Structure formats: C-alpha cells, structure tokens
Amino acid sequence: MVIQLSNRQLELLELVKKHAPITGEQLAEYMGVSRPTLRSDLSLLVMLNLLDAKPKVGYFLGEAYRATDDTAARQRFDNIKVQEIQGVPVNIPEMLSVHDAVITLFTENANTLLVVNEQKKLAGIVTPKDLLKMTLGNAGAVSVPVSMVMTRYPNIVTLVPEESVSDAIRKMMLHQVDCLPVIVPGEGGPDISGWVSKSNIIRLMSDIATAAELGD
C-alpha cells in the first residue's frame, strides 16, 4: 500500500479481503480485541475509502483499496503532488471576532479556517473545537478576536506544493487533522497556496479507482 497504515489497520484490510462482508463485531473477535478498540481504525479506513460499510451487512473493500492494489494506479497515486489537488482555503483576518468566525464556518461549510495577518501571510488556524472551547459558558467570548484562540504558525502542520499526496495522508493520520494548509515560504512569513482536505483525497482516490476500472 502507498499509504503508511499501522499494522492493525493492515490486518483489518486483510481480514476484510478474506471474509467480506464482515461485521465490526466479527473483526474484533478475529483480532481478539473489543469492538470500541477498532472504532477509530475502521473510521479512518472508511474515510480513506479503503473500506466501505453497509448497515446490517458489514465491511467490504472500498474503491481506493482496489485502485491502490493495482501497480500502475499505485505508482500514479504516489507521484501526484499536493499542488495538483489542493483546494481554495477559507481565510479570515486575525482580528475577526469569534462570533463572526463561527458564522463563517457555517456559511462556507468549512471545518477549518486559516487566519491571515495584515500582510495576508498565514498567522494560524482555527477549528470548531477552538471556537467551542472559547464560547462555552462565556457569553462575552463572542467578541474576542480569533487571534486569541487560534493555533499560531509555526505550531501547525503544513504542506508545500511539491510534497506528494502520500505525504499529506501520512501527516493527516499522524496528527489527526482534517485538512492541511499548503504554504510557500515568503518574505515576512508564509504565503498561502491552498489547502488539502480529506474530501480532496477521497475525491482523488475515487478518480483513480474509476480510471483503473476503465483501464486508464
């Protein structure tokens, strides 16, 4: 596999390959662990489209597994660069209020906001969890600027355009994040080139699986 999975995740894939469709309870029994122990691993594999699941049926191999199981498709996937799939991020100024940041999350249907300074350089990121921590039980928090709750650069995980999609997936898995800013070093701070989200990667995997089925 191109994606660097844990031994347990690889074992799950092999079990599903041999016994699909198979339930989570059956997988847990095969591996000698509890069902909750496997929940995060199964969720990740489904998110990456390596597994698929149907209620009351069980787990079976996803399109991405079939694609990466093919040598040509695997090489193609490993050679794709971040700049080829990156999307347009949702940027907000660092003095924007927490209240307005929450509104932006909903109106833009975003799960992460990139915060920029007056020079339009990356200053940090804000997630729904950051905003929730600030607003719970604190009525006055809505007027607080996002610069007070954001995770500041350089204490965030980033990508550069030339990194591979495989690198992006490994970083997401390692740091348990849903998206990563793509930056270009610049004078006075990094410029934002774009971002890569889980949805970008899932869409790519689906495209590769479709191309493999068509013999591309």
Rank of each mutant, 00 (worst) to 15 (best):
L204C: 00
L96G: 00
V165P: 00
N49G: 05
K81G: 10
V57K: 13
T71M: 08
A73L: 02
V196N: 00
P93L: 10
L15A: 02
V182W: 07
V144S: 08
V144Q: 11
R35N: 07
P161E: 07
P36T: 00
N109Q: 12
L214K: 11
T151K: 12
M31C: 04
P154H: 06
R39Y: 12
L12W: 03
L180E: 02
V98F: 09
P185T: 05
M148P: 03
S199I: 11
P161I: 01
D69L: 09
Y59R: 08
L10S: 03
E162D: 13
K18D: 13
V144Y: 05
I22S: 03
K121L: 12
M150L: 15
P36G: 03
V177K: 04
A110V: 06
D191A: 11
N109T: 10
A212R: 13
V115F: 12
P185W: 07
N155W: 06
V98R: 02
I192R: 01
Q119G: 05
N111I: 08
N79K: 13
P185K: 03
Q9S: 11
S43C: 10
Q4R: 14
D70G: 02
A141L: 14
I92D: 05
L42V: 08
N49S: 04
K81L: 15
L122P: 01
P128M: 12
I169A: 03
F60W: 12
V46D: 00
L136F: 08
V82E: 10
L105C: 08
L159Q: 05
M172C: 07
V146K: 00
D41Y: 09
L131F: 13
P185F: 10
V2W: 13
M205G: 03
I201G: 01
L38W: 05
N91H: 14
S6H: 09
G32H: 02
M205V: 04
R76T: 02
N49W: 00
I80Y: 03
I183W: 01
E14V: 03
Q9N: 10
V82N: 11
A73Q: 00
M31E: 09
L51T: 02
K133A: 15
L204D: 02
P89L: 08
V116D: 01
G87Q: 14
P55I: 09
E162I: 03
N91I: 14
A139S: 11
G215C: 12
K133R: 15
P161Y: 08
V146A: 01
D41R: 04
N200G: 09
P55G: 12
I22Q: 01
S206H: 10
L42G: 05
P190I: 07
L204W: 00
R203W: 11
A141C: 15
S193G: 05
L180K: 01
K129W: 14
A53G: 02
V46E: 15
E63S: 12
G32Y: 06
H19N: 11
D207T: 05
T23E: 07
D70K: 10
N200H: 11
G186E: 15
I22D: 06
V142W: 15
